[in-house]
Design a protein around this nucleic acid. Structure first.
Length: 977
RNA sequence: GCCCGGGUGGCGGAAUGGCAGACGCGACUGACUCAAACUCAGUUGUCCGAAAGGGCGUGCGGGUUCGAAUCCCGCUCCGGGCACCA
């Protein structure tokens, strides 16, 4: 006989207690049943999944969406599913309140992380991706998420990325008609060019010849230059460490790659670009239509960076020098001009010799003998400096004088032209007019270089007082630039005067004058750049593009899709630490794939073409996956218009449509959410979708943080092995330092959901995650607190089930008449409060109310016999948050069918009001007593009752009543003196 | 520097102009147990007090109000984003 183990000591516990083993048995059984019965299958209006739609056609629909995960190799920790559980609770509630709900989960499986994981494990990404997806599915299924499994897609499925390629071709086959303010098919542009009703955009034909004089190749080049997807030789972010170029959004402020932290270099390269800038205005303006947090909206606005101002031309020996300014009202205060080191006119602006006159300060010339020497040296030095260098060197202003003067168009003054790297070539015109009196950067430069500071806006009195500046002090004596509002001064010429005008009026006046004399015009500028869309990596969607002999890209016909990613044994990227290395896409090594002989169907017959060997970035699939959820099996279209209109279409005139709720992390505030909005708008313009925005409502869930512990060497120690003594933490007998951060393997503080399921069951984990705080708030994980929700489920279980016999112990079926008033009130208040928490996604308060009801029932019915008319709604109230337990209790009450579609309990208003209420009585705002009065007592009755309270009466007797505030049903307040 | 959040018991949080701290964790006390764990019951903002009761209390300072965690102004600390964008 084996010695008794600890397990034996549990044998005297009640046999039918709700414990982890029972929970897991129940959970597995209900998960199997939901899957077998297709409980969460949601019908579509049309197509493969339309069976059963008629039965639900009259219900309101809801599209609830999680940001789909990247299937990582390390599996989930308990922080990952927070949002998923939240949406599952919400969708279960929506189903029970009569909605037709689309809810599923896909996988964002292309891209750098998946490929890097495959490289680390020396396995093909297709294999690792599929294994990771299978593991993640298992983990998510175990949480009881009510997804429609038929709609689960992965971006790496050929049946999915076939449509990613198709949408890319739609973008390729489109151009942005600025007059119409929307994208249109490229064929319409060609027709208008042929008909002569439209001329090519400026700059799209290098020699500027008219359309009619162009040959076929030149015409193709012009058309290609108009497309929303185009190849361009532009300065891109080249990351040799990753062997690929990156989007601006993927590069950190330190000039390194967001993935892998490798250095990134700006280099001109010919790459695929998507013309997201065409949509800049709509991407800003349509934020108004969205139910998103102000934080995310402002991040998007900042990223797009729209500013309004004017272009102003300064005459110079090298021709007109155009600057961009948001403060044209300060034109009279412009005392010098600066061009970026990369500015195309930098060389032409450089004088042959330093101008005559007094010796120039060394700071201006850099000690060089000639302007050419100074400028060339400065430009060369600037080009060598990486973004990182610029960062570390701080913001000390450097620059050199070009030896040239330009003419301020407002007053004809000659101002020196400088080259300085505080002016960026990538923004505006790459040249500025410097107004040191009213721009801090210009002020700093002017101070360093001894340039004049001319004030043209009167500083506010507050500013002058703060800086101890006299009203008549010249700007040259100011301690800093005055950037605030004020009235213009010293700003007049023979034609126009700004003096006395406020900033806004002055801007309008000077801009009108500039336009009148042809020296400038109003303009809008954006920080947003076009989206660099190609990557030199293997694990992504191949471009459905080929190149003919003329080198111009041409689209594969739709029938050629999908263009399947060719299998490769060695798919590793060509990485390097050499800044000057060249990108070499792995697909370029698949020699039997890179050339193709085919008929593109555009009249050129069968030709041999070279394939595009770049792949798309991982963002491509996530730009439209929610649309595929709505029609995942469609082989004729990416989504049937009827299904799109039903699930995503606008609900009313002026509504943008889109998913009803999108839940995900705030880290996607700009990248994914901006890209997806852009693609959606292109599809909208081309008539493929009826919604103009993909995500009507966005909700950012918080993060589950976790404590991590560091030993004295600064290494992380296993968090589970740390013990606390009197507020200090110890590991292996030695004190360790605690810090709160992310949860993860590397911090040795990850807790796996599987582990929680084994210790408590999935319902306990779900309850804990939902109870620990409102969904949008971050909170630290606390394993010791999980038991609270475990006890709650045990208590609820005991309301229904006898722990010893396993028999149902609720009362017989009743009509509610025999239920105590107190219990009725408790029940109906709970129902009302749970509804409220569900609607506002504050599930923590719903759970608290359910706990209160349970506590009430436990106390009121210590020997069982909770009325049936109370027990049933309790099971239903529990269903969204703890669905397995709720299903089990519901079935044990004698119901055959799942409760997933059972109507959610509705509160009876009659039980929400009390006959009598306890009213606080205040004296001078402090509660001094309480009186119980009829709920509908009027003011006089209430005041009389309040005066009748012994303690209040005693206080009032000793003082003079100055005022009495009576709020019926709320309180009485005596103000005494 | 600029732009967003946020600060309430030992901890997670509740209350969004009307009884601060619901609900849960932890802690303490008790029941069960040989004992412990589990479970159950009770207490638990803080200070004074044996108690009754009272003082104080929602980051700090001011304001509005009969009444402020909640609204307004100024500051401070923490978290996140952007950052030479003219």
């Amino acid at each position: 006989m084996a010695a008794p183990t600890s397990a034996d000591t549990t044998s005297d516990l009640p046999t039918h207690r709700y414990d982890a083993a029972l929970a897991q048995e129940i959970e597995a059984r209900w998960q199997d049943r939901w899957e077998a019965e297709g409980t969460f299958h949601t019908p579509n209006p049309v197509g493969d999944l339309s069976e059963g739609f008629d039965a639900v056609a009259d219900r309101p629909k809801r599209f609830v969406l999680d940001m789909f995960p990247y299937p990582s190799g390390v599996g989930l920790h308990v922080g990952h599913p927070l949002g998923f559980i939240g949406t599952d609770v919400y969708t279960r509630y929506l189903r029970m309140t009569g909605h037709n709900v689309i809810y599923t989960m896909g996988y964002d499986a292309f891209g750098l992380p998946a490929e890097q994981y495959a490289l680390q494990t020396n396995t093909h990404p297709r294999v690792t991706t599929e294994a990771n997806i299978a593991n993640m599915r298992r983990q998510l299924r175990r949480l009881g998420l009510g997804h429609d499994p038929r709609r689960a897609v992965s971006t790496t499925d050929v049946g999915f990325y076939r449509w990613t390629q198709w949408i890319f071709l739609q973008i390729f086959h489109a151009w942005y008609d600025r007059d119409a303010g929307r994208a249109r098919p490229i064929a319409e542009l060609e027709a208008e060019l042929d008909a002569g009703t439209r001329q090519p955009d400026a700059g799209t034909e290098p020699t500027g010849r008219p359309w009619a004089e162009l040959d076929a190749t030149a015409r193709r080049a012009v058309v290609n230059a108009h497309r929303l997807a185009y190849l361009a030789e532009v300065p891109v972010n080249w990351c040799p460490g990753l062997g690929t170029v990156l989007a601006n959004e993927e590069v950190t402020a330190e000039g390194r790659s967001e993935r892998g932290n490798f250095p990134v270099y700006r280099r001109p390269m010919k790459q695929w670009m998507l013309r997201i800038t065409a949509y800049a205005d709509r991407l800003v303006d349509d934020l108004e239509l969205l139910d998103w947090s102000d934080a995310i909206k402002s991040q998007q606005r900042n990223w797009i960076g729209r500013s309004t101002g004017a272009r102003v031309r300064f005459a110079s020996p090298a021709g007109d020098l155009e600057v961009y300014t948001t403060r044209p009202d300060t034109l009279f205060g412009a005392t010098y001009v600066v061009v970026a080191p990369e500015h195309p006119l930098a060389t032409a602006l450089t004088a042959d010799a330093w101008p005559d006159g007094p010796d120039l300060p060394e700071r201006w010339t850099g000690g060089a003998a000639t302007p050419a020497e100074a400028v060339t040296g400065y430009v060369a030095a600037a080009s060598r400096r990486s973004e990182l260098d610029r960062q570390t060197e701080g913001k000390d202003k450097t620059g050199v004088f070009t030896g040239t003067y330009a003419t301020n168009p407002a007053d004809g003054r000659l101002v020196p032209v400088f080259v300085a790297d505080y002016v960026l070539m990538g923004y505006g015109t790459g040249a500025i007019m410097a107004v040191p009196a009213h721009d801090q950067r210009d002020f700093d430069f002017a101070t360093a270089f001894g340039l004049p500071v001319v004030g043209v806006v009167e500083p506010s009195e507050a500013w002058r007082a703060r800086h101890d500046v006299a009203a008549d002090a010249p700007a040259g004596q100011w301690p800093e630039a005055y950037v605030g509002d004020g009235v213009a001064m010293a700003s007049a010429n023979a034609d126009v005067t700004l003096d006395g005008l406020a900033v806004t009026e002055a801007k309008a006046a000077i801009t009108a004058w500039l336009e009148h004399v042809g020296a400038g015009e109003a303009t809008t500028q954006y920080k947003l750049r076009d989206w660099l869309f190609s990557r030199q990596r293997y694990w992504g969607e191949p471009f459905p593009i080929v190149f003919g002999d003329d080198g111009e890209p041409q689209a594969l016909p739709d029938e050629a899709l999908p263009l399947v990613l060719p299998p490769m044994e060695d798919f590793s990227p060509t990485t390097s630490d050499d800044e000057d290395s060249e990108p070499e896409p792995p697909l370029g090594r698949v020699t039997d794939w890179t050339t193709v002989t085919t008929d593109l169907g555009r009249g050129d017959g069968v030709q041999t073409y070279r394939r595009e060997t770049n792949t798309m970035p991982n963002w491509a699939g996530s730009c439209w996956y929610e649309l595929r959820y709505a029609d995942p099996t469609n082989t004729e279209a990416f989504v049937d218009p009827a299904n799109e209109a039903y699930w995503l279409g606008p609900r009313s005139e002026g509504d943008c449509g889109g998913a009803d709720l999108y839940v995900g992390g705030v880290e996607h505030a700009v990248l994914h959410l901006l890209y997806a909005r852009f693609w959606h708008k292109v599809l909208f313009d081309l008539g493929h979708v009826s919604s103009s925005e993909p995500f009507r409502r966005l909700f950012n869930q918080g993060m589950i943080q976790a404590y991590a512990y560091l030993d004295e060497r600064g290494f992380y120690v296993e968090a589970t092995e740390v013990t606390e003594v009197d507020g200090r933490w110890y590991h292996d007998g030695r004190e360790v330092r605690r810090e709160l951060g992310k949860m993860g393997k590397s911090l040795k503080n990850a807790v796996a959901p599987d582990e929680m399921c084994e210790r408590y069951g999935a319902d306990t984990l779900r309850l804990y995650e939902m109870f620990s705080g409102p969904l949008d708030q971050s909170r630290p994980w606390d394993t010791t607190a999980v038991v609270g929700m475990y006890r709650l489920l045990q208590r609820i279980w005991r309301v229904f089930i006898d722990e010893d016999s396993g028999e149902v112990r609720t009362g017989p079926v009743d009509d509610g008449a025999a239920v105590a008033d107190e219990t009725q009130r408790a029940l109906h208040r709970t129902i009302a409060a749970v509804h409220d928490g569900m609607e506002t996604l504050r599930f923590n308060t719903s759970i608290a109310r359910i706990t209160e009801l349970t506590n009430h029932l436990t106390a009121a019915y210590p020997d069982g016999g909770v009325p049936h008319s109370v027990a049933e709604p309790l099971a239903l109230l529990l269903a969204p948050v703890a669905p397995h337990t709720a299903e089990e209790l519901w079935s044990r009450l004698g119901h055959e069918a799942t409760l997933a579609y059972e109507p959610f309990p509705e509160a009876d208003p009659a039980w929400l009001v009390d006959d009598t209420v306890e009213i606080p009585v205040q004296v001078n705002g402090k509660v001094r007593g309480r009186v119980t009065v009829a709920a509908d007592a009027d003011r006089d009755a209430l005041e009389a009752a309040a005066r009748g309270d012994d303690k209040v009466a005693a206080l009032l007797a000793a003082a003079t009543i100055r005022k009495v505030v009576v709020v019926p049903g709320k309180l009485v307040n005596f103000v005494v003196g």
